[in-house]
């Protein structure tokens, strides 16, 4: 008995390399980050001193943090909302059999392969003021050209749209897989009872898709809250600090303003914030699936 236990436990050795990597590159930096967040370290010098809670007090009074915080929520929840609605619509459309649907699926999914950074640069040609592709279309309708990215709030929404546009394919593919797993006899039974297509969607499709929706929403939410590359490509967080996400703010505070201690504090609170949101949603969705 004892021997058997030992010989079984030996396979635990298999996860040692993975655990080591996580300890060195995630856990250790996280602990070190807690320490650094109480200092005024500038990122390179040997000398620094402890400043107590100063960085945390600054966090809660810093307007740039407030903006980045709200933007992160818009990037996370705004894109997730759009990806859910559009992804579901695309999936419902492309679940029907008609010519060209598989080509269309592939085309919608293709941008997922493209680096978000490059997608940002491509979108520059659409939103730029001078000869911008969107302004060219506006001109066709006799409208005046708009400098899209000059206004902070508008820039935030455009970046959110771009992220949703690029990754809607992920949701669509998940929903298509979900739709295909719903037995058609449910719809047949419903149509015998005289249920219309909208009611079918409301009372059969959506409830049956709940597991797919919950995983897609989690994936989108985590992706949106981490948003970094597109922002760097399009605005670099500007104009001013208007379109920063918490991620780009950490990067700028560290490499731009050489305020490593403060950047650590922002990073840690960002980490806590995203962990809390993700866990909240995971619990919510788990409950929903059980009661279904």
């Amino acid at each position: 008995m004892r021997k058997k236990f030992h010989s079984q436990a030996i396979i635990n050795l298999f996860y040692i390399p993975a655990i080591l990597l996580f300890l060195i590159f995630v856990v250790f930096p996280l602990i070190k980050g807690v320490f650094l967040s109480f200092t005024n370290w500038n990122g390179y010098s040997q000398k620094y001193s402890m400043v107590g809670l100063a960085n945390y007090i600054r966090f809660f009074t810093d307007n740039n943090v407030g903006t980045a915080f709200i933007n992160t929520i818009i990037y996370g929840f705004g894109s997730t909302f759009l990806q859910t609605v559009l992804g579901l619509s695309f999936a419902l459309l492309l679940n029907h059999k008609f010519r060209g649907r598989s080509v269309c699926r592939a085309i919608i999914y293709m941008p997922v392969m493209i680096a978000p950074l490059i997608m940002g640069y491509i979108m520059y040609f659409f939103v730029t003021y001078d000869r911008g592709a969107i302004n060219d279309i506006l001109a066709l309708f006799g409208k005046e050209a708009v400098d899209w990215m000059s206004d902070g709030t508008r820039a935030v929404f455009i970046i959110m749209l771009i992220n949703a546009f690029q990754f809607v394919g992920v949701s669509m593919v998940i929903y298509l897989a979900g739709l295909q797993s719903i037995p058609t006899m449910y719809y047949e039974a419903a149509s015998i009872d005289g249920v219309g297509p909208w009611q079918g969607l409301r009372y059969i499709t959506l409830p049956m898709l709940m597991p797919a929706i919950s995983s897609a929403v989690m994936i989108n939410l985590i992706g949106g809250l981490k948003l970094f590359d597109v922002i760097m490509a399009l605005t670099g967080g500007g104009p001013g600090y208007a379109s920063n996400s918490l991620s780009t703010l950490v990067q700028r505070t560290y490499f731009g303003s050489e305020n490593a201690g403060y950047a650590s504090a922002i990073g840690l609170l960002t980490f806590l914030f995203i962990m809390l949101i993700s866990n909240f949603f995971i619990k919510r969705f788990d409950k929903r699936e059980v009661t279904m």
């Binding site: 809250l225 560290y254 980490f271």
Partner: peptide
């Protein structure tokens, strides 16, 4: 129990935005 704990720890890392530990990861 140990392995379940380790698994949820590993999956938790998926949610960490890497830039939140940028300063200490880079200095390490």
């Amino acid at each position: 129990r140990l392995n379940k704990g380790i698994k949820s720890f590993i999956l938790g890392i998926m949610m960490v935005p890497p830039l939140s530990i940028l300063v200490s990861l880079y200095s390490t």
